[in-house]
Design a binder for these strands. Structure first.
Lengths: 113, 113
DNA sequence: CATATATACTCTACAAAGAAGAGTATATAT
DNA sequence: ATATATACTCTTCTTTGTAGAGTATATATG
């Protein structure tokens, strides 16, 4: 039932990037954010195939933007997470948190074991 | 360079389960823990193929146990995370935490610990 | 204007990770 | 002997992740 909502490792990162970028989320900006924040230099093809998949699973939606008056200002396809996408992100995070909790690998002082 | 250390979604959960189970980590107990903790009912085949992959990537090691005097007490293959596996887990967590930080979607618990 | 260059995205092919489930091994229970 | 319980193996297939050449479209420049 929640099987549709299961996110791959990279899908989750892309969704988080989209949320984070807000109104400025589109393929190229997602690529840049991932490179900057977590040093993940993914090829453009990898990224867009993941974006396509996320879209066909209705985890994100897109709106075509207008070309902007700057060099190379081709029209962007702005991305936005859907309700379903948010649910998927929350579920992933919840599972990770549950499995992570209280582990000695966690660096800090552990409360439980 | 860190590419070898990149973990799939399920690989990470399995590693966390192994850490958590300590001396009692082996295929069947990992399966049970995942079912109990995050409601993830994975087929036995999926789990062992992931365990095999983790092992061939040297993210976990295994030691054959002795048969136990209980019905169905077949010898277990005990699993243990390696140094390399711990590094991979830390990296995954770090990336997730970075991307997650400060997001409005963040209801309650945090991934980081 | 023609050509260079910049940003953004499309397409195709393939590799890695995840999933299923029948089958095998080996133990105790009856 | 046969049933049954736990643990693991094997094969096959689907989904995710990766790569990079190619296309589209904008401004910059000689």
């Amino acid at each position: 039932m929640t099987k549709e909502l299961r996110l791959g490792e990279f899908e989750l990162l892309v969704l988080l990037a989209i949320i984070r970028l807000g109104d400025e989320a589109y393929g190229a900006s997602v690529k840049r954010l991932l490179a900057k924040e977590i040093n993940r230099d993914v090829s453009i093809g990898s990224l867009y195939s993941t974006i396509d998949r996320l879209q066909s699973k209705e985890l994100i939606s897109s709106i075509e933007g207008e070309p902007t008056p700057i060099r190379g200002g081709r029209a962007k396809s702005f991305l936005k997470i859907t309700r379903k996408g948010e649910t998927a992100v929350r579920l992933s995070k919840s599972n990770l948190t549950t499995m992570w909790k209280g582990l000695s690998i966690n660096g800090g002082s552990e409360v439980n074991g």
